[in-house]
Design a binder for these strands. Structure first.
Lengths: 159, 159
DNA sequence: ATATACTTGACAAAAATAGTCAGCTTTGTT
DNA sequence: AACAAAGCTGACTATTTTTGTCAAGTATAT
């Protein structure tokens, strides 16, 4: 039950694009630097999000990426579904593959994975990038108020 | 966002044990046959569930596996957590690894994965094996009432 | 004793993940 | 027109995870 780096990087990248909202396109390089993601790998990820219509690209000098919608209309779920495929916990729930289960309508597991999958979708779709921007502002204030906490941090991992 | 076969086989295996509840131990072989799972692989899975205290084993002839609790007190979440590890969508949320994220309390992604993870746990824990047994009885009735649907099924996949 | 069944650890093929790399196309600027 | 910035695209590869298999045990009821 893990997300791949694609999903995680994707959310963080789009978050950077969202932070840049209203200030023209942001380049892959800038996103990669800010988030510590490989440039080449990020290219792949952003391209996929672009093809899905979630972000838009501007070619040529001073180009880069833009949100295709307002931050409030773009959810974590949009990004995760695009990069990780449909949330089908079990193979037999993927579109077009339903008939593969030899137990089919006698299958109790099917009910379980359907129900849990729906809950996951619900959770992912309930969080927009505007929520993230708001959240970031709150956290920023907290850091200013308690600057000592920041000193304790080190390491190279990322969320 | 897929479950591994371990989690899926685990749920189906425990479901078989639950169906056998009150009738003494059921053997690995019988579970493997009924659910079409490799005997050796299932051994590993059941052993892990046994060590976690979710099921109990009886050795010797006429031995096998039993539920360690009543079906109503055993949830899908218990099985999935044991077989797939804690539901930590991102590495940085695993127990003991929190400090690894270089962004730590400035990290908005962290909030997201925590929130979604909690929803998943909630969904998994809301389904007990008693629910599955009840569900199965309902489905069984439906099959008897509409026997024609069953004829349309084929293939080898499983949920 | 012995047959049945669980225990444990080592091993291996196959698939998915996480990148890397090279060369291309588009477009604004001079 | 030429150039450089920036995205586009597909092929390739190393690593890790998954999905098992196999073999040699240990425990126990009859």
């Amino acid at each position: 039950m893990k997300l791949s780096t694609k999903g995680k990087y994707g959310v963080r990248a789009v978050y950077e694009i969202a932070r840049h909202f209203g200030r023209g396109p942001i380049t892959i390089k800038e996103i990669a630097d800010r988030q510590g993601i490989s440039f080449s790998y990020l290219e792949q990820i952003l391209h996929k999000l672009g093809k899905a219509g979630l972000i838009e690209s501007v070619r040529g000098p001073a180009g880069g990426y833009l949100l295709a919608r307002k931050p409030a209309e773009l959810t974590i779920g949009d990004i995760v579904r695009t990069l990780e495929g449909p949330i089908a916990l079990s193979h037999c729930l993927e579109p077009g593959e339903a008939g593969d289960c030899y137990q089919a309508d006698d299958c109790v597991a099917r009910m379980v994975w359907t129900k849990v999958g729906a809950k996951i979708e619900e959770a992912l779709d309930s969080i927009s990038f505007e929520d993230l921007l708001t959240q970031q502002q709150v956290q920023q204030k907290e850091i200013i108020l308690k600057p000592k906490k920041k000193a304790a941090l080190a390491g190279k991992g990322v969320c």
